[in-house]
Structure formats: C-alpha cells, structure tokens
C-alpha cells in the first residue's frame, strides 16, 4: 500500500515543531483520516479537534500545506503525495497543543453582539409571515459552521492581532444574518462602526476564498454592512437630520 509523509505540528505554545510521520494512504482518504491513523498507531497523545467528519460541524480547521482547510473535507488525492504534507494549527489563535488552538475569543465576541429581537407577530396565533425570497439571502449567512477559517486568514487578526478592536469576518456574517433578518428590529450599526471595527476590513476577500460553505462573505455580508454604516453615519442629509432632531 502507498505511504506518504505527514509533517505535523507538535508541541504547545512554548515549544513546538514539525514532526514527520509515515503513514499508509488508501482510497478516498481525507487529511483527518491520516491524522487519526497516526494518532491511533504512532502518537496516542496527538491533539486534534474534530467531531462530525462530514464538513458540518466546523471543528477540524487547520492549515494543510499552508492552506486553511477543514481536514475532514480535504482529500489526500488532491495533494501532491510525493512530497511531505504539512499539517499545522490555525495561526490566528493561540496554540493549546499540536493541532488544537484556543478559539474561545470567538465565543466571547459573539456574546457581545445584540441578540435577535423580532417585530411583534404578524398573525393572531403568534406566528409570522415571510416570503421565501426574503429569507434566501439571510439563509446564506446561516450556513456558517463556525469553523473560524475566515478568522484565521483575516490579516487584521492574523498579522495585526487586533482582536480587541475587530470582530472578524465570522461575526460580520453573524451581524449580517441578524441585520438582514426580515423580523429583526435591532440596530447594530453603531457597534459595527465603533467597537466591531468594520472599517479595518479592506475587502481583500481572503475570508470568502477559504469559506468551506462558500458563503460570499465580503460581497454579501461585509460590503452591505459597510454601506449601511456609511448611510447612517456619513450621509450628509442624515447628518443634517440628526443635528436638526437633536435640537428639537
């Protein structure tokens, strides 16, 4: 049976390096299968986060040959197996151990975003009426599996480490899902402009490229939100209106 070399990042935040493992390759295998095989046969303590192994939970994010990927959806036959395959943890988050990073910051960010707040029900039985075409666009955002690969590649987080001032693509998508929800009545534009740092995004679309759910993050979520922020805070007519209103 064919074998390949896997260079896997081993260690913790203080001390880590690539370790080479030879492992068998069989038909249909994905990168996560190789990691599991190595874990079971050669390195029982190799840390890796995973759950569904079907591209639905977004747990097994890593960098495979330098590309941010879900390990469970990356087939080995897509990779040049005559050379070693490198498997590293996401680089935008602190390393816990081996392939596992501390992504808790993401969960904290979410709690600060104003929650869904619906308009009163449309019907007497307490339900709402919505047309399918009005929810299609929001349903795109709701496909997000929270793998955080978009966060991993965003240079504002990865290179500039502005985690305190910038919520990252995942949470712009989350904001967009709320803001464009047909029933939602909340306004999150002030936070988007101030604490969420949407202005830092210079639409390089790296997030869109790596999204395993093919969400058009930049074009459909971030740019419309930027436009709404501009409309609310920089539109000269609105500005006049606000001044006028504050005087009365």
């Amino acid at each position: 049976m064919a074998t390949a070399t896997f260079k896997i990042w081993r260690g913790d935040a203080n001390n880590a390096a690539f370790v080479d493992y030879e492992s068998e390759v069989s038909e249909g295998m994905v990168v996560l299968d190789a990691v599991h095989q190595i874990q079971a046969q050669q390195a029982n303590d190799l840390a890796v986060r995973w759950n569904c192994k079907a591209g639905k939970c977004g747990s097994c994010s890593a960098e495979v040959n330098g590309n941010p990927k879900l390990m469970c959806m990356t087939r080995l036959n897509e990779l040049p197996l005559d050379q070693p395959i490198s498997i590293e943890p996401m680089r935008a988050f602190p390393l816990i151990k081996d392939l596992v990073t501390d992504v808790s910051w993401n969960f904290e960010v979410k709690t600060k975003i104003k929650k869904f707040n619906p308009r009163p029900p449309d019907a007497e039985d307490g339900t709402w009426r919505m047309a399918q075409e009005d929810i299609d666009r929001v349903q795109e955002f709701r496909k997000c599996i929270e793998c955080f690969l978009c966060q991993d590649v965003c240079h504002v987080l990865r290179d500039h480490h502005l985690h305190k001032e910038f919520i990252g693509p995942r949470y712009f998508v989350h904001n967009a899902a709320l803001e464009m929800h047909p029933l939602d009545t909340e306004n999150r534009l002030e936070e988007l402009k101030e604490s969420d740092g949407i202005g830092y995004c210079n639409i390089t679309k790296c997030c869109t490229k790596v999204c395993p759910e093919h969400i058009t993050i930049t074009d459909n979520a971030i740019i419309p939100l930027k436009e709404r922020v501009v409309d609310q805070f920089y539109d000269p007519l609105r500005k006049l209106f606000r001044i006028f209103r504050s005087r009365t």
């Binding site: 869904f116 339900t127 709402w128 919505m130 399918q132």
Partner: peptide
C-alpha cells in the same frame, strides 16, 4: 424557535 430567530423554509403564503 422562530421567535428566537430560526428561519425555516416557507410555504407560498409565508408560513413554515
């Protein structure tokens, strides 16, 4: 769940 934000697919008259 709908009141908490779930967006189920719709019927032609806008219900779940």
């Amino acid at each position: 769940l709908e009141a908490w934000g779930a967006l189920f697919d719709r019927t032609s008259d806008g219900r779940i």
